[in-house]
Design a protein around this nucleic acid. Structure first.
Lengths: 341, 341
DNA sequence: TTGTTTTTCCAAAGCGCTTTGAATAACATT
DNA sequence: AATGTTATTCAAAGCGCTTTGGAAAAACAA
């Protein structure tokens, strides 16, 4: 059943039926009700393709698969994606995925997506500190929202968590508990969030007069394996240089730290203090850690949901200033932290 | 630049230009070349929306987020999805995702996708043994391909790996090596692949005259945690009942088994034999295990790529019989298996 | 030369919706 | 009664592509 048939059934014009269904004001409530009932009765659904053609809007948001593949990255992306899809579905939008393949550069992927006009806007995830994509999309005239932040002169719509503030708090807590040698296990520095976290961490320590030792900063893949490796190295330092506290950029890293401690007969929350950032991944919650983990936490799935809202909001009100949301991050104190000594 | 403008430029009709670009035979190679050059020059890209409306095809494949969320499931899904997106992109198709949300049942999701005619076909992943979705999609007239198998009377297009054969081989190898008590750590039985694997495993043992002991079958989430738990229980059995070999449905489970062994001073490949199924997830390869793991292996990403091919093939040749592919699974022997005693 | 087939191209009719510009009906104001 | 307002409804023009049914031109055969 299409619009023409439905209007014929009702003895109304397509215009009126279309307007009735789309909530325009210039149609009487009586006819609107009649139209709605008939549409419901006949199971009428407007054709997405026709609407697209008529409006120029596709009702679709695009997302690009991150180039680097690793376990944590995939997990984070999936959770973020899940949030996006969930919210998009609520708002009757579709999410389509793209990815660079073979010889095709990532740039080509964006170009293709834009040219074919298959999406109304794009969502950029896990941006680098110096990310070329925003400039490219801007130039191509494709609206977008960034999840995370990146350096760019122009106003860019984004949603990010307060990574700097979170790690400031974590470092400060460590310092307040008397820890003087605190290690930071973090992601690679070219990832913008990792840089933010390091900055916050350093400031958190120095705000309490503790100075950060360069050998206590380790960057790498944010997985258990790496946490184990890094922590093992640090715990084998001579006592005077050995850290008494660890701050980790992921629960995975924290797991590694715990194993390194276990091997040496050290107990988290008694001999070693531990704080990790918790992205609220399913079945990797800080509260299920043993012992329950003091953590900075922020749901990446929730962020996905919100990014979609921002994206659609931007499309509906093109004139509005770009959204720029920075979510505060809770520091939840559990049993993995204790005073030094 | 749209078709009308382009044809005007060329002094040709829209018909001819359209046909030239889409490779129809009734246009001379000379004009075709001329048209192609002009299209290239002006950066002409046909509007996806218009084509959709005209052809009734959306150039889009749908995929539904699995309902259950767990780490391994997400990892597998992501890798599968990556394969799908990659191949779809090569073939100029889009992948859009849907998911059940809030009060909306999964059924409603499919109904919505179908009614809105936003996708040409759907891909079903991780089917249950008794899965209602194929019947639903069939009834709604939506073409689909299943990744995995499910019981259904009608012919259903699917791609699956030979789970039964793989675990048959694994069990047989164990038996041939002299193991008489071999445990199977598997996924929940309502998952079709888990049932297939159990069947193959049992037959593999009995083909060598070894009879399976019920207490050596453990089902649950296929993650490290669970592997550790299950293996710990089994290794603490009295010597006569204790398994000397383990077959695991995932590398994650194998990791857990290894940790359970380590705690008891047992060494994989010396005291305990271990075989696992390897889905070729990025950075979870059996060859990187310590020790390198004897494994049945099959790339789930590759399966994603192939499923998309099958799907599109089905759309292009609607009359053809449904594809039904079962991939053989390699059993690669490495150092985690040794003769019993 | 004429008839027939093949090749090459085109005009026009959709696909199903939104939206513009007007027409009509109903009501209120002088 | 004439005029202005407001509330409803409609006819028709796209949106940019594919595809049908010819027609013109070219190639071939009789």
């Amino acid at each position: 059943m299409n619009l023409r048939e439905l209007s014929a059934q009702l003895g109304l014009s397509q215009t009126t039926v279309s307007r009735a269904l789309n909530g325009f004001p210039e149609v009487s409530e009586e006819t609107r009700a009649r139209v709605r009932a008939a549409a419901e009765l006949h199971g009428y659904r407007p054709s997405a393709a026709a609407r697209r053609l008529a409006t120029g809007q596709s009702g679709t948001l695009g997302l690009v698969f991150p180039g680097e593949r690793n376990m944590l990255g995939d997990l984070l992306f999936t959770e973020f994606l899940r949030g996006c899809v969930e919210k998009a579905s609520e708002l009757s939008y579709d999410i389509t995925l793209a990815m660079a393949h073979g010889s095709q550069s990532e740039e080509a992927v964006y170009r293709r997506a834009v040219r074919n006009a298959r999406v109304d806007a794009m969502i950029l995830s896990s941006p680098l500190s110096e990310d070329p994509r925003p400039a490219l999309l801007r130039q191509l005239g494709m609206p977008f929202i960034v999840h995370g932040r990146t350096s760019g002169v122009e106003p860019i719509g984004f949603l990010d968590i307060d990574n700097e503030g979170a790690f400031f708090s974590a470092a400060k807590l460590m310092a307040d508990l008397g820890h003087r040698r605190v290690a930071l296990l973090n992601g690679e520095r070219h990832l913008n969030f990792a840089a933010d976290r390091e900055r916050g961490f350093r400031q958190g320590l120095s705000s309490r007069g503790v100075k950060a030792a360069d050998d206590l900063f380790v960057v790498g893949p944010m997985v258990e394996q790496e946490g184990l490796r890094a922590a093992s190295g640090l715990l084998d330092l001579p006592p005077a240089q050995r850290p008494t506290g660890f701050v980790c950029s992921s629960i995975g890293l924290a797991l590694g730290v715990k194993r390194a401690c276990s091997k040496r007969g050290l107990v988290i929350g008694r001999d070693v203090a531990l704080i990790a950032h918790d992205d609220r991944l399913h079945d990797m919650g800080a509260e299920n850690f043993d012992p329950p983990l003091t953590a900075t936490q922020s749901s990446i799935g929730e962020a996905g949901r919100r990014v979609v809202e921002l994206c659609i909001g931007m499309l509906r009100a093109p004139g509005d200033p770009m959204p720029a949301e920075i979510w505060p991050v809770d520091l939840v104190v559990r049993s993995s932290t204790m005073p030094a000594l």
